[in-house]
Lab assay of single mutants.
Amino acid sequence: NQASVVANQLIPIQTALTLVMMRSEVVTPVGIPAEDIPRLVSMQVNRAVPLGTTLMPDMVKGYA
């Protein structure tokens, strides 16, 4: 099973992502693949992302 990127904390809207905000976890449905974590650093979320939420491509500006 492929690991996805999951929020390690509440990430407020417009926040630039850092490594400490994300973790990898095998979840359903599958979100952004964990191997993309380095690419996500400094990208902004376009909505508030609660703790434990799987990051989906449409939540990160410039990802999809």
Rank of each mutant, 00 (worst) to 15 (best):
V49W: 03
R47G: 05
S24L: 05
A3T: 08
N46R: 09
P29W: 04
V60D: 03
A48T: 15
T53C: 08
P38I: 08
V45P: 02
L17D: 04
Q14T: 13
I13C: 15
E35G: 10
A7K: 02
N1T: 15
P38M: 10
N1R: 04
T54C: 05
V26K: 06
M43S: 06
A3N: 07
M21Q: 03
V5E: 01
T18R: 07
I11S: 02
E35K: 07
V6H: 00
A7Q: 03
T28A: 12
A7G: 01
P57C: 09
A3M: 11
G62T: 05
V5H: 01
R47E: 08
V41I: 12
Y63S: 04
T18E: 10
V45I: 05
V26F: 09
V20F: 15
V30A: 09
M21V: 04
N46Y: 12
M59A: 07
L51P: 11
V30E: 14
V5C: 07
I37D: 00
R23Q: 04
P12L: 06
Q9S: 10
Q14L: 14
L55T: 01
M59V: 08
L19N: 08
D58E: 14
D58G: 09
S4Q: 01
L40H: 00
V49A: 04
P29Y: 04
N8M: 06
G52K: 01
M21I: 04
A64I: 13
I11Y: 01
R39Q: 08
V49N: 02
P38R: 09
N46I: 09
V30S: 13
Q9D: 06
P33Q: 07
A48W: 08
I37C: 05
R47H: 10
Y63C: 05
V60E: 03
A16W: 10
M21E: 04
A64D: 09
T53F: 12
M21T: 03
V49S: 02
R23I: 06
Q44F: 14
L51A: 13
D58S: 10
L17E: 04
L40A: 00
M22Q: 01
Q9H: 07
R23A: 07
V5W: 03
V49I: 15
T53W: 12
L40R: 00
A16R: 10
V60H: 03
L55E: 01
L40K: 00
L19F: 10
P33S: 09
V45S: 06
S4K: 02
V49H: 00
P57M: 06
M22V: 08
V6F: 01
Y63V: 04
D36Q: 12
A48L: 11
Q44E: 15
G62K: 06
M59R: 01
Q2E: 14
M59H: 08
